[in-house]
Design a protein around this nucleic acid. Structure first.
Ligand SMILES: [Mn+2]
Ligand SMILES: [Mn+2]
Ligand SMILES: [Mn+2]
Ligand SMILES: [Mn+2]
Lengths: 218, 218
DNA sequence: ATAAAAATTTAGATTAATCTAAATTTAAAT
DNA sequence: ATTTAAATTTAGATTAATCTAAATTTTTAT
């Protein structure tokens, strides 16, 4: 039996460790879950106790195979629900994350698999993130951040890092969506802002924005 | 802020009080939620404290207007999800209740209303129970239990009281479904079992079964 | 009207998740 | 190599939900 709270911690560890391969610090988890470090320590002991994670005092935590499997299952559900909300229930991409945060904890293998089939086995969620299949497999496509793109090259927008409503609404307002093509015109040395050609016209985005847009080379 | 547990208690009180009009006893709630009476007492104090219910020590509990509104909202979600699972995700009517028990607690007005629209505003769930609309309104159709039906009369099956998987599977095996027409042939005085004509042939059902099938007079 | 039975509440514990403040360990800086 | 700072853990409390066992109230039966 696994609680919703345990699931949220496991998912956070997975994401912070980039697929659960790296060791994750107590404070990083506390920040990402908006809790205090002492609460995290308590939970890490429990997760280790239940064999979802390997944890060494003061040294950080890393998911076990069992923990990774749980994480991928939750992420699969989260992303499938996001697709459902956008494709079937008229949600916009900035509205889905919060609701999916709860729906991802519903325990029913049949529900998940039938939802997957109903949506015709989508491979990516509304933010461009890949959806694990029933066996937990998915391929991360080659993508780079706009902040690391090369001046003069052409790219296609394939994902976002920040999925907050404010950021996604900013992208909407500036007509940046998944699939949008752009060319990097200039990178300002002073503040790292980037000028791009987008839908015919020139736009400048801040470094903060550039660090949250994933691109694929064209 | 309302917890999932509080919601489950409120729903139970609503159902036990037949739309929350009657006073409900501590033990009745404990039975229906599989908890102990002492736990119920604690929760009743809390529900009263939060103005979801009026509670008098030793005298029972009844929902306030605020409590009833919560209850109807949860029931609306529960039944909409049941329709979704059957209509869109290939669940059978005996599989939906358990999952809906969790889905009913997802808090998102947009989700509920869009789901309602996506399903084309269904009026009844897979067990024949009416689905409250956005304002909490619904009409209970005139229905009687098979156990109280008149010998010689014709009826149509419009609902079930027990929604357990075992009971619903029994009905499937005996080809009794919503919409099925039947005629009451005989009521056995000894054990209250009832002989009915169903799909052309004669069947006998126990009193226990008869007490869980709702009929509409034809 | 009493006594016995049933229902309900209280008292005292337990488990999960969280917090603040203090103690400890590790990392960084002189 | 010390000292200082940062990160992490421990100690001790708190809130929600639950339980068992004991006490109280209400109901039922004599
Ligand atoms: Mn979550
Ligand atoms: Mn997403
Ligand atoms: Mn429920
Ligand atoms: Mn139902």
């Amino acid at each position: 039996m696994i609680t919703q709270t345990e699931e949220n911690y496991i998912k956070a560890i997975y994401h912070l460790g980039q697929q659960g391969m790296e060791t994750v610090s107590t404070n990083a988890i506390a920040d990402s879950l908006n809790t205090k470090a002492s609460s995290v320590t308590d939970m890490l002991k429990k997760l280790a106790e239940k064999n979802y994670a390997d944890y060494i005092k003061y040294q950080g935590v890393i998911l076990t195979k069992k923990g990774k499997k749980i994480a991928v299952g939750i992420i699969r559900k989260h992303r499938l629900w996001e697709v459902f909300l956008v494709e079937k229930l008229n949600f916009t991409w900035d509205e889905v994350h919060e609701v999916a945060e709860d729906l991802e904890h519903i325990q029913s293998e049949k529900l998940t698999d039938e939802l997957d089939a109903f949506l015709e086995h989508p491979t990516h969620d509304p933010h461009g993130d890949p959806i694990p299949d029933k066996n937990g497999n998915f391929k991360q496509i080659e993508k780079i951040l706009l902040s690391k793109a090369l001046v003069g090259s052409k790219y296609q927008c394939v994902g976002v890092k920040d999925t907050s409503s404010t950021f996604l609404k900013y992208l909407d307002a500036n007509e940046i969506a998944l699939g949008t093509e752009l060319k990097v015109l200039h990178k300002e040395p002073f503040d790292q802002s980037i000028k791009i050609k987008l839908n015919g016209l020139d736009t400048t985005v801040s470094q903060n924005v550039a660090k949250n847009i994933f691109l694929k080379t064209l």
